[in-house]
């Protein structure tokens, strides 16, 4: 089986509002697939439908070859879920948490015990084995949540915002860990609102906004096709804006106005010096384009939801 997830026109409706508004995508075995978008774009809702925490309002969704509308129980017992709200059992220790979840998956104790010990080692949690959950830092909690999601030897891992709210060093650790996981066991599906995370980790991303997919593809490919090879950011005076835009247009440059600056998108072969000779700016940044530029171009505002 090559296709791990297959979504056809899935809709999630709350009252009258479609938070997921008919989207299609596929996830193949062995890839890290990302759902990228600002808060409220609908990525968590898509995720929850995939791992069976949310009923599907419309459309067809197949996960590991099973119909998510009918066989959610089997899906849940064969995939690994790392939700954003970890829901760790505060009354129990690190090790007991893993054993409880093994129980919920109806895994025999004698199978679960060595597996839990292995996972503690894998996650560098051995020293915290008998600590109670309230004693753990945010990073340790996240590592335990990942270990918990893997207790059933899952065929695919679903991670909802795996590094949100984590310190940079732990974020890096999680990234390296997920890359290792992909190499060893296969497929990872994650949601994120960090474009660096999507660029670094994901083989393919679906960029979401208002419950719809704006673009889908490999990050580098998306950047190249939607933006180009380079971005020149020019801060200009508001009164001169119209004049400069006219000049850029005449010279066939593609651009986007973001607040009081002009972002000029350069293709391979276009020279940034030409832009600088057309526009006078006291503050110029020349940089590589990123997924935020793609999002900005397609949605008209920043990924993080800051006003432009």
């Amino acid at each position: 089986m090559k296709t791990i997830v297959e979504a056809k026109g899935i809709v999630k409706r709350y009252g009258e509002k479609n938070v997921v508004d008919g989207i299609d995508f596929e996830v193949s075995r062995g890839e890290i697939f990302g759902l990228l978008g600002p808060n409220g774009a609908g990525k968590s809702s898509v995720m929850k439908m995939m791992y069976g925490a949310s009923a599907i309002s419309e459309g067809e969704l197949f996960v590991i070859g099973l119909n998510a509308k009918k066989n959610f129980r089997e899906i849940k017992s064969r995939v690994g879920v790392i939700p954003q709200e970890d829901g760790l059992d505060e009354e129990f220790t690190v090790f007991e948490n893993l054993m409880l979840y093994a129980g919920y998956q109806l895994i025999d104790k004698n199978v679960a015990r060595p597996r839990a010990e292995d996972l503690l080692r894998l996650m560098h949690l051995e020293d915290h084995r008998d600590k109670f959950i309230p004693e753990l830092s945010g990073g340790l909690r996240r590592r335990l949540t990942i270990a918990r999601g893997m207790i059933n030897n899952p065929e695919v891992l679903f991670l909802d915002e795996p590094t949100a709210g984590l310190d940079p060093d732990i974020r890096l650790w999680v990234w390296e860990f997920l890359e290792k996981i992909r190499a060893e066991m296969g497929t990872v599906v994650l949601t994120t609102h960090y474009m660096e995370e999507a660029e670094r980790l994901c083989d393919r991303v679906a960029i979401l906004e208002n419950g719809k997919i704006l673009a889908l593809g490999a990050p580098a490919q998306l950047i190249l096709s939607k933006i180009g090879a380079e971005v020149v950011e020019l801060k200009v005076e508001q009164k001169d804006l119209g004049y400069y835009l006219e000049r850029l247009k005449e010279n066939n440059f593609r651009y986007q106005v973001v607040g009081s600056s002009i972002n000029v998108h350069l293709d391979e072969g276009q020279n940034n010096q030409d832009v600088l000779s057309l526009v006078f700016s006291r503050q110029v940044t020349i940089r590589r384009p990123n997924l935020n530029d793609v999002f900005l171009r397609l949605a008209g505002h920043n990924l993080r939801g800051e006003p432009v």
């Binding site: 925490a53 849940k76 879920v81 939700p83 709200e85 970890d86 829901g87 919920y104």
Partner: peptide, 8 residues
């Protein structure tokens, strides 16, 4: 909610 991520 987290128990629900299993067979439960």
């Amino acid at each position: 909610t987290s128990q629900m991520t299993t067979a439960i």
